[in-house]
Design a binder for these strands. Structure first.
Length: 1095
RNA sequence: GCGCGGGUAGCUUAGUCGGUUGGAGCACCCGGCUGAUAACCGGGAGGUCGCAGGUUCAAGUCCUGCCUCGCGCACCA
């Protein structure tokens, strides 16, 4: 403990910056962890940001919540280590470098040299590291950035390799041929979570195509929105139970627009339900049948030779598929095996020929059609439509009207490359997968055990995702990332390497088998192209090349719980004691990202969940509710606020603006408001206390006083403190940080500042030693230090300054002010540490009825002002008498009340009827069940009773019956209201059984004594204002002259009072008629004119 | 299209188990109070509780449908 020093003026920004310097010198972060090293561990895991983008305010929000929980748990006594992390691999990095170096194709990169390119990537990921570091430090996010995990580190990559090998050994890793969204420009396919980033609404031509049956004049109609897949068509799918019709065109269509058409007499087949939608001609139905009857029919390929038949017998026939619906199209699904997921599965089952008509560059292969070969598929829509609609169609075997029935523009959301904006092609390709479908039940089970905040993200959004889990496509045809550690021989043998040591062994084995290899040292760089250079040897002596992929960078971050410790190569201890982690926290957009990949990796590798609690944060929107994004240019720079209101106010604002999981509309004005209300007020309370404590040499350690000895006002604020701290803690436990902080702010501003401090000012002004002042100092000391501790996790700066000055220690070394053992349940309850409980402080005693009564007193004080306004009596003119009518016993508050109300004397009026009358009100809750539909009528009778007193009596006597319903005491509420005609007002506190009504009556009669007192107060107030205007020291003495006209008599006592209050050493009260100084200030009150000079 | 979360005063928001008079803060107007404060207190103005039905004696609150914003899923043929 220390004796408080004076507080000084507030400059939040420089105060925070100075404190940052102090923290740095004291190594405050590390020592705050160190000092709790005996406590139970609370494991936090940092989701690694990528430092090749500038940090924005949304990053500050996420980091504020991470920090908040870690600091809170730390103060509770937990040992909370916080390792930083950086995400450094992946497509965003490559694209950034590609743009900068103008290497917009894979050929260009390879021409430039993969090693050079990857070197550029390696450097690029640190572009904004210092910006991130500065932001992180300035906002006081305590995280260890000096020893972070970095996904490009060899150790980290090695752990990822190890993890992958675990999957490989469990046969969860496989090489497959799947249809994936693919970007020909970046030459890479995407996993579902990446695809989700790039949906855009586009309008494209869709076509209805005639597939001319063999041995039949009719054609089957099918629809597609991707004409470029038509050359790849090898089958038509129908629903076996769907009803189809064969129709004949009976007359020409009118107003035909666009390409295509059909002649009278032509026959087409389609789903019955869709005739109206599809057909533009009048037709006659020839036949109706189920899809199953179509199965097996064969038709003419649209582009003969584009796809070789191979040994397939089912090519270009009609197939059955359950998933075919009649919601759109024609009820017949055009199937191009290589360009649709359903198509691919169907094709594999049915044995359709599986050949590409499109190359990896997005252009048609040679041999597709002379007019299409080598052209980018998305630019061929027109050409294909033209070919189809030519007479007899593209294959020359169709009807004279061609193979196109009609075209229609179609708008839908279509996936686009989230980096380059190009439309993605669904494309069957070689890829590596983790068999997530095999562990789906485990994923769901583990997810059930996670405490989600809010819970609906876990059950809903994330649960939904898991229930529909797909195998994870983890390979990327890219350069900068963790290389896939699988080597493969031409005959298909595969080897997955799980460590550097294993790689060295295998390389040595290959060398001794006669395969030449570069050196493979202990510190071999585990990136491309180095690892590509190694050729291993298969069991049969064949050379094995590495599969030329890197991993989805989400796999990297999913490995963070163990790769950050280089597990298992570090011996495993660090990991064993920290897994699964207690707490993670990121934006809700990570549901499919990090939240998923963490669980995916932990489930497949360890058969365990990765985290116990997950706080999922809402998006950050701008003040208009629009998502913040670089392209919109509506990103708020955190420094705007760090440099204006400071990080404390910024953080407090973010937490109080709404629930953590609700979208936050970031309003700059709100930060300012938070600063003005919360922090300025807190500072002024502190300044008030510290200045006087310093003046009086108050020593909180020795000048103590038992709470029970202190005045009621002190016991009240201490009880409030205990109540608020308790609910604060409970709200923290249920993740309702916003509620907690709003309530605390309300306590600071209203209870503490506007009532306790305002009521206590005069107590501290007294220069003599006395018990009352001592009590106040003790109370302020306790309340302030406790508030500091409660605020500290959220806004760590100002409260540390205050706490250090009052207590001598940093608030971040202090204990959370709830010392009840077990209060930490939910953290790591399994190993709750008694010591941590003992270390936390105790709160002052609670007295709820005292709190309730004070509430009433404050209500009455406000009521008094209302009465005066209504009666036109100014506040400074005292009333002789005030009566309190009914209500609980407030006698211990009469002093406070008399001062607040400015009345000479408070009395309790026993004769309630003198000022009050009663009103009866129905209690619907009790009355409704027995009164049923008559309740409103009965309620009306009760409310409007002309004689409520006798009605009450009969109710009490049990003889009151209205409309056949017996009314009992519990069916009504008795309300007391003031009688009209008095300067009085009635307030109601609470409702139902707790309700109490209380009236306040003020005596409006004047006496010479009251007029004199009132005048003295007005004069004093004006002089004080003048002193303030003149910037006089509080202790400074003044010379005072006063002139008055038309004034009531000013008694000696009141004259003396003015002199004392204004610290006047010389004073002249001029008799009426004296010449008033030209320098005098003048004011008028109730007809009296007063002039005065202050010197 | 499906799912989740919103829609309450000009703005930001609270609103418990359905209970009859929907609270705050900011901004605005009038008044008061003040030798801690960018403060505070009283009053005023400002509300179709997204819309429409329904259940109920009683709906901001429960149910159904719709509109709208945000997010996610599926966007498939």
């Amino acid at each position: 403990m220390a004796q408080p020093k004076p507080a000084g003026e507030l400059d939040a920004v420089s105060m925070e910056n100075a404190l940052l310097e102090t923290w740095k010198q004291e190594n405050a972060f590390q020592s705050s962890i160190e000092s709790r090293k005996d406590g139970a561990p609370f494991i936090f895991l940092e989701g690694p940001p990528t430092a090749n983008g500038k940090p924005g305010i949304h990053h500050v929000v996420a980091r504020a919540y991470k920090d908040l929980v870690c600091r809170w748990k730390s103060m509770e006594g937990f040992h909370v280590e916080r390792k930083g992390g950086w995400d450094t691999h992946g497509l965003p990095v490559e694209i950034e470098v590609q743009k900068r170096m103008d290497l917009m194709s894979n050929e260009a990169i390879e021409a430039y040299g993969m090693d050079n390119f990857n070197q550029a990537c390696r450097e690029s990921v640190w572009t904004y590291e210092s910006a991130w570091r500065e932001m992180t430090e300035r906002m006081a996010y305590w995280v260890d950035l000096d020893n972070p995990y970095v996904t490009l580190d060899n150790n980290y990559v090695e752990s990822c390799w190890w993890a992958l090998k675990q999957m490989f050994d469990k046969e969860l890793l496989y090489r497959g041929h799947k249809v994936l969204p693919y970007c020909p420009q970046t030459g890479t396919s995407y996993s579902s979570h990446e695809v989700a980033l790039g949906y855009k609404e586009v309008e494209e031509p869709s076509v209805y195509v005639k597939f001319k049956l063999n041995d039949d004049d009719a054609s089957i109609l099918a629809w597609t929105t991707t004409p470029w897949t038509l050359p790849g068509n090898v089958g038509l799918a129908v629903g076996p139970d769907v009803t189809y019709v064969r129709v004949r065109i009976s007359e020409d269509a009118e107003n035909w627009s666009g390409a295509g058409g059909a002649s009278v007499g032509e026959e087409v087949i389609l789903a019955k339900d869709l005739m109206k939608e599809v057909l533009r001609h009048n037709v006659e139905i020839i036949e109706e049948f189920h899809g199953s009857e179509l199965v097996g029919r064969s038709y003419e390929p649209l582009f003969p030779g584009a796809v070789p038949a191979g040994d397939s017998t089912s090519g270009w026939t009609v197939l059955a598929a359950d998933w075919v619906t009649t919601t759109d199209g024609t009820g017949v699904v055009h199937t191009a095996v290589m360009y649709g997921e359903d198509d691919y599965h169907l094709g594999m089952e049915a044995g359709l020929p599986a050949y590409h008509t499109v190359g990896m560059d997005g252009a048609f292969n040679k041999g597709t059609h002379p007019k299409l070969d080598g052209r980018y598929v998305k630019e061929c829509d027109e050409a294909i439509i033209e070919l189809l609609s030519s007479p007899k169609g593209s294959n020359g075997k169709g009807p004279d009207s061609g193979l196109l029935y009609r075209e229609k523009s179609y708008s839908h959301d279509y996936p686009h490359c989230w980096r380059t904006d190009h439309p993605l092609l669904y494309y069957a390709m070689d890829s590596w997968f983790v068999k997530m479908t095999a562990v789906k039940e485990k994923l769901l089970e583990f997810n059930d055990g996670v405490e989600w905040a809010p819970d609906w993200v876990g059950e809903g959004r994330f649960g939904e995702w898991l229930r529909n889990v797909k195998d994870w496509a983890i390979s990327r045809e890219r350069y900068w990332g963790t290389p896939l550690p699988v080597w493969r021989s031409e005959d298909g043998e595969m080897k997955c390497i799980g460590s550097i040591a294993e790689l060295q062994q295998e390389v040595a084995k290959a060398v001794s088998a006669g395969i030449s290899n570069p050196e493979c040292p202990d510190d071999v760089d585990l990136h491309r192209p180095i690892v590509d250079g190694f050729t291993l040897v298969s069991s049969s002596g064949q050379p094995m090349q590495r599969e030329p992929f890197v991993m989805d960078c989400w796999f990297d971050s999913g490995c963070a719980p163990f790769a950050q410790w280089h597990h298992p190569f570090d011996g495993g201890e660090k990991f064993d004691s920290s897994f699964p982690v207690d707490y993670i926290c990121e934006g809700v957009d990570q549901t499919r990202g990090w939240f998923y990949t963490l669980l995916a990796v932990s489930t497949t590798v360890f058969d365990m969940p990765a985290y116990k609690r997950c706080l999922s944060l809402g998006l950050i929107l701008d003040a208009e509710g629009k998502k913040m994004s670089k392209s919109r240019g509506n990103i708020v720079d955190p420094w705007d606020h760090f440099n204006r209101e400071g990080a404390d106010a910024t953080r407090w604002y973010m937490v109080t603006a709404g629930a953590p999981w609700s979208p936050l509309k970031f309003d700059s004005n709100g930060v300012r408001e938070t600063y003005a209300k919360m922090f300025l007020t807190l500072w002024n309370i502190y300044k008030f206390h510290a200045d006087y404590a310093a003046l009086d040499g108050f020593n909180p350690e020795t000048d103590t006083m038992d709470v029970s000895q202190r005045p009621v006002l002190d016991r009240w604020i201490l009880s409030r403190l205990a109540t608020v701290a308790n609910s604060y803690h409970n709200d923290f436990k249920s993740w309702n940080f916003h509620k907690a902080c709003r309530d605390l702010e309300d306590f600071v501003v209203n209870d503490l500042s506007n009532w306790y401090v305002r009521r206590s000012r005069r107590r501290l002004w007294d220069e003599a030693e006395n018990n009352d002042k001592l009590a106040c100092q003790n109370t302020l000391h306790e309340v302030l230090t406790t508030v500091c501790r409660l605020v500290a996790p959220v806004s760590p700066f100002m409260v540390d300054v205050i706490h250090r000055n009052l207590d001598g220690r940093s608030v971040h070394q202090a204990a959370w002010p709830l010392g009840v053992p077990g209060s930490l349940e939910g953290a790591t309850a399994d190993n709750w540490d008694e010591k941590a409980a003992e270390a936390t402080a105790q709160l002052p005693p609670q007295d709820l009825s005292l709190e309730q009564n004070m509430e009433l007193v404050r209500e009455l004080a406000e009521t008094g002002r209302r009465i005066r306004v209504e009666a036109g009596r100014r506040q400074r003119l005292p009333c002789g008498e005030g009566w309190i009518v009914s209500g609980p016993d407030l006698s211990q508050f009469h002093d406070i009340l008399a001062e607040e109300l400015n009345v000479e004397h408070i009395a309790i009026e026993q004769d309630l009827d003198r000022f009050q009358q009663i009103e009866l009100a129905p209690n619907f809750r009790a009355l409704a069940p027995k009164a049923r539909s008559e309740v409103n009528a009965i309620a009306g009778e009760i409310k409007n009773s002309k004689d409520p007193i006798s009605m009450l009596e009969s109710i009490k006597a049990g003889t009151c019956e209205i409309m056949g319903v017996k009314i009992e005491e519990s069916d009504i509420e008795v309300r007391r209201v003031e009688r009209s005609g008095f300067a009085a007002s009635t307030v109601q506190i609470g409702h139902g059984d707790d309700a109490s009504q209380i009236s306040l009556v003020l005596d409006m009669n004047d006496t010479p004594e009251l007029l004199s007192k009132g005048l003295a107060r007005d004069i004093t107030r004006r002089i004080q204002a003048k002193r303030k205007d003149l910037n006089l020291e509080i202790e400074a003495n003044i010379d005072l002259e006063i002139w008055m006209s038309n004034a009531p008599e000013l008694f000696d006592d009141d004259r003396q009072w003015i002199v004392n209050e204004t610290r006047a050493s010389g004073v002249i009260f001029h008799p009426e008629g004296d010449v008033i100084s030209t320098e005098a200030d003048e004011f008028e009150v109730d007809g009296t004119t007063v002039s005065f000079t202050v010197k």
